[in-house]
């Protein structure tokens, strides 16, 4: 094994890129769960975002429009989930799983004509002076705009939940929908908006995969990233900062195992490829065993203003 072949600058830079799609999806799902809704359809919304973003970017030649379209597609898809669970009171787990299946099927239908095409991608930012700083410049400061957008979004979500009244109401709805209703808050409206935000974020995450990280369309290209995002929300104990840590940890392990493979580590390739998932499970087990998780009390419970 030749560890010297791993370039630390490139390693960190590629960790940031590989963490971004999961980070986007996870921060959106965290907001949804903070409102007391468990949407297991993240994978489906992500891959729908990936294919719609890709198609729009290819047809318009503008990756920016692709991202906007991906966010809209994710939000629209999540709206079906919102309608089923919030108005028709269907079971959230089953509906979420259904959403994933719908998303996977829909995306391969839409994506068929786009296989094997290369999409226009987002340019790397080239900020004068900053990007030219040795080491830090290429490592942290010369990525595309979405990397920074995702980090800014984490900070914005954190501040929203901690400091704003709307954030307080959202948390209250997730803690006890009945109490929030008794105080006169519109539980269903709050939840629908949270679900749509989560859908838009998942769509963005998917588009980042197909427009920047890979950048092309292949069927099933999210490869479980949506599920990882769900796990990261639990891993993060529903805190925005820790979602970022979790996403970067997972992204780091993914990239590291690729580098280790390239460096010829004496470990079976299959085990290395599986390592990000294995480590996620391990961390989740440790967190659950510790018992302190801080899940929103009304998570996954249907609410109906019947009494």
């Amino acid at each position: 094994m030749d560890l010297s072949s791993i370039n630390p600058i490139l390693l960190v830079a590629s960790i940031m890129v590989s963490a971004t799609p999961i980070l986007l999806a996870a921060i959106g799902e965290m907001v949804v769960e903070k409102a007391g809704v468990l949407n297991l359809g993240v994978e489906g919304m992500m891959i729908t975002g990936a294919v719609v973003g890709f198609a729009i970017a290819v047809n318009t030649g503008t990756p920016g429009l692709g991202f906007v379209a991906a966010a809209c597609a994710g939000a629209v898809l999540s709206l079906t989930f919102a309608f089923l669970t919030q108005y028709l009171l269907s079971n959230q787990v089953a509906t979420g799983l259904g959403l994933t299946l719908v998303g996977l099927g829909l995306s391969s239908l839409i994506g068929k004509p786009y296989e094997g095409i290369k999409s226009p991608t987002l340019p790397k930012l080239d900020i004068p002076i900053l990007s030219d700083i040795p080491v830090i410049g290429p490592m942290l400061l010369s990525h595309d705009i979405m990397v920074y957008f995702s980090l800014a979004l984490v900070a914005a979500v954190w501040a929203f939940l901690k400091y704003t009244r709307a954030g307080l109401i959202l948390r209250a709805v997730g803690e006890s929908a009945d109490s929030a209703h008794a105080l006169g808050y519109k539980v269903v409206n709050v939840r629908v908006m949270a679900i749509m935000f989560g859908g838009a974020c998942a769509g963005l995450g998917g588009a980042y995969l197909s427009l920047v990280r890979v950048p092309q369309w292949t069927e099933g290209m999210t490869a479980g990233a949506g599920w990882i995002a769900l796990a990261i929300v639990v891993f993060a104990s529903w805190r925005a900062g820790r979602v970022a840590v979790g996403a970067y940890l997972f992204g780091g392990i993914t990239v590291l195992q690729l580098n280790l493979q390239a460096a010829g580590a004496q470990v079976p390739v299959a085990l290395l490829s599986a390592s990000p998932y294995l480590i996620t499970i391990l961390v989740l087990v440790i967190i659950s065993a510790k018992g302190a998780h801080g899940a929103p009390a009304a998570l996954g419970r249907a609410f109906h203003a019947s009494n």
Partner: peptide, 24 residues
């Protein structure tokens, strides 16, 4: 004042009070 308190266990006292006010 409700019989089954309309309180949020994971939030602190001030946050709970703020939720019940129009313009906290």
């Amino acid at each position: 004042v409700f019989q089954h308190f309309s309180l949020f266990e994971a939030l602190n006292v001030a946050e709970n009070v703020a939720l019940g006010m129009e313009t906290p």
